[in-house]
Design a protein around this nucleic acid. Structure first.
Lengths: 146, 146
DNA sequence: TGGGACCATATGGGCGTCAATGGGATTGGG
DNA sequence: CCCAATCCCATTGACGCCCATATGGTCCCA
């Protein structure tokens, strides 16, 4: 398992720290990643987190659009200018800063959500709701495992 | 027999574990599967369970779309973030987590339902009812067993 | 054909390990 | 000099692994 999959909720302690789930930590260490890059998601109230190579992914996405379009301009502002670096402590915890809290609504618990080659931080209730909405949309469009 | 067929109900023990029916376990071991991928069904209040190849199937659907489209983003949220991995213990039991209980309504017993190349976890009463409804629907449309 | 031994599955519980969490100590920067 | 971020260590509680028991069905043999 070398990708970020599934989801898990952990509690923030009195110092504002939260444990990254063990499964996600092993993906990171397999990739030799110790410093994480975070920025705001474009559509959801969530913070996206990954190694520095995560920048490449979104630069590709920007390259796919007209580089001078307002959308690409906005993305660059968010990705290049809006990101922050986060370090893990020896136990694999990260600090939940106001940057994270304000954008996501997180207060006491954090939902870690795998997205394949990166993961996200959500307010748990917000994640559940967004997922339910997405599932409803899929139901009407007929997504099946077969 | 290399597919998941028929149905069977088992009880959850005091630790929240339930035995996967022997017939399903042999299908799994024939495929060399020990870690299972689970996700919420898009139509019924049931959890679908299968090997990791179920995930591959979803990802093929995603690959067919524009990887940066809102639809692909939504689908990644469901497939990457919404799925859960569960392990079987040496006796072939799995933990019935809140993820499973909340979505299905399962409390004390689990109905295992074969669906061909995967199987599902249902609250027993809900399964009986859904089956009856499906049967009625076909009858009223004048369909014959085929 | 009936009884009994045998076998496989389902179920119950003890125990060790590891991840998640909490709190004290230390260090470095403002 | 103080505050806060970081490190280190202790606790606990969940989960995985092991072995024991129950239960029901099948097969064999009298």
């Amino acid at each position: 398992m070398n990708r970020f999959l599934s989801h898990a909720a952990n509690r923030i302690d009195a110092k504002g720290r939260v444990s990254v789930p063990s499964a996600f930590r092993s993906v990171l260490s397999d990739g030799g990643v110790r410093e994480l890059y975070c920025f705001q998601d474009f559509v959801f109230p969530a913070i996206s987190v990954g190694g520095p190579e995560l920048l490449d992914r979104f630069e590709k996405q920007m390259a796919a659009e007209d580089p001078f379009s307002p959308e690409a301009n906005e993305m660059s502002l968010l990705v290049h200018g809006g990101g922050v670096f986060v370090k893990l402590d020896p136990e694999g915890r990260l600090m939940v800063t106001d940057f994270i809290r304000d954008f996501t609504g997180i207060s006491t618990d954090v939902m870690f959500v795998g997205r394949g080659d990166y993961f996200q931080l959500w307010e748990p209730q917000a994640f559940m709701k967004a997922q339910a909405v997405a599932r409803e949309g899929r139901k009407s469009r007929g997504l099946r495992p077969d």
